[in-house]
Design a binder for these strands. Structure first.
Length: 191
DNA sequence: TTGCGGATTTCCT
DNA sequence: GGAAATCCGCAAC
């Protein structure tokens, strides 16, 4: 189990969205350690009309202009948090939206957080996984090389990766920038 | 200072 | 398959 280093995140955003598949997100909470394997991502890179960072550098999007390897978390539709991993080459903004996880550690805690039993429904969506993993704005800007929130590689081979249009995006809706491994189809939000 | 649109989920039909 | 729930960032007034 190797924690990903800074250089891992310092690469093309769309490429990062694909290599992050299969890696494990770990959150250390007051209720214990929670973790899950990344099984679905979307790329929001520099110049993409659908990316928050393209609208300009603001206090909200500041994190995506900063150093790679930090967490960008935002609140949407008044009730959901979404988590992104800031990944980009130097000097341009960009982030990878985490859309689904396969729960690994702390499953009982996640069930409690989500108020439901079905293990495949715990983290199969960007708003769902943040609720299950207790991710909120207190983790905005968190350094993924720290001990509270980080990503590790356990060496699994995810196999063939499928590319699909992104969900809920109205701009550049034809671009295939959503990724998931074919064999993890059962865990994703929309196969 | 106000108003509007949004990288969603859930529940109902 | 469609609508409601309901907060924040940002642009315009």
């Amino acid at each position: 189990m190797r924690k990903l280093d800074r250089d891992f995140y310092r690469r093309d955003t769309t490429e990062a969205a694909q290599v992050l598949l299969g890696k494990i997100i770990v959150v250390n909470t007051a209720d214990g350690r929670l973790s899950g394997r990344i099984v679905e991502t979307e790329s929001y890179s520099f110049g993409d009309p659908a990316a928050h960072s393209t609208k300009g550098r603001t206090p909200r999007t500041e994190v995506m202009f900063g150093e790679a390897g930090h967490a960008y978390i935002y609140f949407i539709h008044g009730l959901h948090h979404c988590m992104n991993i800031v990944s980009h080459p130097d000097d341009v903004p960009g982030g990878v939206l985490i859309r689904a996880l396969e729960p690994i550690e702390g499953i009982e805690q996640m069930r409690q957080n989500r108020g439901m039993e079905s293990i495949t429904a715990l983290c199969s969506g960007p708003g769902k996984l943040t609720q299950a993993m207790q991710i909120d704005k207190s983790l905005l800007g968190e350094d993924l090389l720290g001990d509270r929130l980080y990503v590790v590689d356990d060496g699994v081979d995810v196999g063939e990766i499928v590319a699909r249009p992104r969900i809920g995006v109205t701009l550049a809706a034809d671009r295939l920038l959503r990724f998931y491994p074919a064999k993890y189809r059962q865990w994703v939000s929309r196969p």
